[in-house]
Design a protein around this nucleic acid. Sequence first.
DNA 1: AAAATTAAGTCAATAGTGCTGACTTAAATC
DNA 2: GATTTAAGTCAGCACTATTGACTTAATTTT
Lengths: 170, 170
Amino acid sequence: MKADADATSQIVVEPITESEIPQIANIELIFFAYRDFTADADRILSRFGFGRAHHRALYFVNRKPGMTVADLISILAITKQSLSRVLRQLIDAGHIRQIEGREDRRQRRLFPTQSGRELVLELSRPQSRRIDAAMRESGLSADTLVADFMKNMINPQERAVLANLSSKEG
Amino acid sequence: MKADADATSQIVVEPITESEIPQIANIELIFFAYRDFTADADRILSRFGFGRAHHRALYFVNRKPGMTVADLISILAITKQSLSRVLRQLIDAGHIRQIEGREDRRQRRLFPTQSGRELVLELSRPQSRRIDAAMRESGLSADTLVADFMKNMINPQERAVLANLSSKEG
DNA sequence: AAAATTAAGTCAATAGTGCTGACTTAAATC
DNA sequence: GATTTAAGTCAGCACTATTGACTTAATTTT
């Protein structure tokens, strides 16, 4: 008993409590939920030798066809050098094509090909189904509470970027 | 016009629609919400030269003090080799200590130190506040809808792991 | 008691994703 | 004509994670 007391001195034996971190249960749930949410797509991506970076790039190009390289770098918040490899692989695989800007010929406007569209739909479908099922099972199908909550989780200054993505204009 | 039509053949100009992917708006919101959610902790971690892997390991050791190395590997779903470096750095930094199992002396039971507890609280506080604020702003404070939704986003077979984390027994 | 299994740790090699810095090319703008 | 901008490239580095092979010590099985 004495030896045990010595060996455990300085350590903390009590788990974190809700009194210390009120949202501890939700922190954990979000961690596991996001992991499973992304795992759906990860499995499909690995068949193509792609990773999450490819998914994100392909996703936004499909969401806003005709976006420039600079647009994509901005929305992904990564560097030009980081994007280049991923973009090259997507172009080489025939999922994305670059077209010289008509107004500004320095720009390379990014468009999905038919296969790029098909791939992004294949990646998005299980994610959409998972959200849909979770909403139904939680009795949230009819309202916008999930969207409201997620919006409020995002930094206020970034919410403008989202509004732009949902808008009709390129 | 003819040149343009040729140049854009095979590409897709239309964005993804909700008729193709019903939950497209929520997919996007979840992506940005999770990014901002983790960014809070990332900033703090970088001050210590730590990454997300350290956060996750430290988190679960604080959540279930006395867990074994095997427990942690299982819950993080990573390999022993991946964990080893991260765990070593956390031990060297004095945030985690290993104590030989009393029943099974092959086991190394993991406990946070006082500094480990303080660090995990510092990392968790902004995440807890963000969730709390988002719930209040969405009018969800009073009920368990967020938790319900997140639970339903997790693969059914993994929900048992969560129940174990929340239980009183080690 | 010997053999097999288990928990943990280690060494080596590899992959994916991201970073910084420095530089080039071509086009647009001042 | 000079400067700035958009995109691309080269080189090197860091972090996180992987697989495979192996060691050590302790426990369990036979």
